[in-house]
């Protein structure tokens, strides 16, 4: 496929078709591909956001599970970086049934972020850069040794 970014996340859901609906409603992701078999089961799907894609699938092997199947545990999470209005993004997600587990807050590194859990338990973080913070400032405030800060 043309124009694909080098990294994409693939998420597992018990009900991937429901996920397509709530991810569109909550985050504004756009469905760009959906393949269903002759029983109406989802075989593959992709949603676009900006120049990135995520794949929404089912629990397609014994080693692929939705958090809903493993007591809510997450082993990876996807970060969404937006250009404008983190707070409005959060309200949209809340209205679409996402549980806000950390309300929007401006972090020492200059991003305003919030964290939410979707209806199947996947945890998402969302951030918007709201202040330019230098490496020295960030290191001084956090007490962390920071490398590779541009």
């Amino acid at each position: 496929m043309a124009d694909r970014t080098a990294l994409s996340s693939a998420l597992c859901y018990r009900d991937p078709k429901a996920a397509l609906t709530f991810l569109a409603a909550g985050f504004g992701f756009e469905l760009v591909m959906l393949i269903e078999d002759d029983q109406g089961n989802l075989a593959h799907s992709e949603m676009a956001f900006g120049d990135a894609l995520i794949m929404i699938g089912n629990e397609w092997t014994d080693d692929h599970r939705s958090p809903a199947a493993i007591d809510g545990k997450n082993t990876q999470s996807v970060h969404i970086h937006i250009a404008t209005d983190c707070d409005a993004h959060c309200e949209r997600a809340r209205a679409a049934g996402f549980e806000i587990i950390m309300e929007p807050e401006t972090q020492f590194y200059g991003d305003r972020t919030y964290r939410c859990r979707d209806p199947e338990g996947h945890i998402w973080t969302v951030g918007q850069t709201v202040q330019a913070v230098s490496r020295e400032e960030a290191a001084a405030v956090s007490g962390l040794k920071i490398e590779g800060w541009t």
Partner: peptide, 10 residues
Amino acid sequence: MTSKVYVALR
């Protein structure tokens, strides 16, 4: 039912 292939672009 039949299979379904859906794609969309702006």
